[in-house]
C-alpha cells in the first residue's frame, strides 16, 4: 500500500499538485498496480544483465559541425510569454 504521504512526495517530484480526491484515488490504484507489478520480484534474475537498449548498437556519433542557422523567431513563436527574444517565466522564488 502506498501511503498518502508517499503519494504527496511522488507528486512533488513530478511537479504535480493532486486534489485530496486524487490522492485517495491514486493511493488505491497505484497500490493495486504495484501489487500486480510485484510479480516480477519472484523472477530469478541472478546473474542477469538489465536490457537498457532494445537493439545491440553503440557509438552512434555525428561530426562536430554547425548546421543550424539563427531560428530564434520560429523557436519563440509559440512561447506562452516572451520578451526581447527570451522566454519569460514567473520569478524564481526560493522555497521557504
Amino acid at each position: 500500500m502506498i501511503s498518502r504521504e508517499e503519494i504527496a512526495h511522488i507528486a512533488e517530484l513530478a511537479s504535480l499538485k493532486l486534489t485530496e480526491e486524487e490522492k485517495e484515488e491514486f493511493s488505491e490504484q497505484l497500490s493495486d498496480v504495484l501489487n500486480y507489478i510485484n510479480k516480477i520480484l519472484e523472477v530469478d534474475t541472478e546473474g542477469v544483465e538489465p536490457t537498457y537498449y532494445p537493439l545491440p548498437s553503440s557509438n552512434i556519433l555525428r561530426e562536430d559541425e554547425v548546421t543550424n542557422q539563427d531560428r530564434r523567431q520560429e523557436m519563440l513563436e509559440q512561447a506562452p510569454d516572451k520578451e526581447d527574444d527570451q522566454f519569460k517565466v514567473p520569478g524564481i522564488e526560493q522555497k521557504e
Partner: peptide, 24 residues
C-alpha cells in the same frame, strides 16, 4: 511539458507554481 517554451500555461506566483499548475 512545463509551460515555458510552448503549449498552454497556467499562471503561478513563481515559476515552480506555474510548472505545477500547468501540469496539474
Amino acid at each position: 511539458y512545463d509551460g515555458v517554451q510552448y503549449g498552454t500555461r497556467q499562471s503561478g506566483d513563481n515559476v515552480r507554481d506555474m510548472f505545477v499548475n500547468t501540469r496539474s
